[in-house]
Amino acid sequence: MKSKTNIFLLISAVLAVVITGWVYYQMSHSIGELSSNTEIDGDFKVCDEDKIPNYYSMDTDYEGGKKAIKNELLSNLQNLKFEDSGLITFRFIVNCEGEIGRFRIQSTDLKLEKIEIDSEKLKTLEYALVSLKKWNPAKNEFNSYDSYYVLNFKIRDNRVVDIF
């Protein structure tokens, strides 16, 4: 009887801990979080790993907007040829100091099915992004913050035709 009481207590405690841990994890994490990988991210640092909002909630932007990004990059990417039409979407972090890194890439065709793009071409796009130096990090009246940003390279007729 004594052991039955202990087993009941043990099982109920374990269940409560597991459920609480699961709910806590689920509440404190959201889709699209990019974890650090030093092999591909180099020495890129964020200011607060636990607090990285999305660009649309913090007005993260590039000086002159996406139009300026397009003006800076598009003409230099015209020699890059692609097989499929679609989108190459970069999700990355603009850190509190206006540096960018932790690039993660999704490539989709016109039906939004995942497609493979030659890694060298993706590297070229990433280098082009790294060359952008006029980022305005997320900020409010108190501080500057890290934030996630999304940028799309639109592919049509085998080349990049738009960046937005």
Binding site: L87, R91, L112, E113
Partner: peptide, 14 residues
């Protein structure tokens, strides 16, 4: 909605 806002169009549009 959140998938598309965050650039995960394959999942969002499915």
């Amino acid at each position: 909605v959140p998938y598309n806002k965050r650039g995960y169009y394959e999942k969002g549009f499915r």
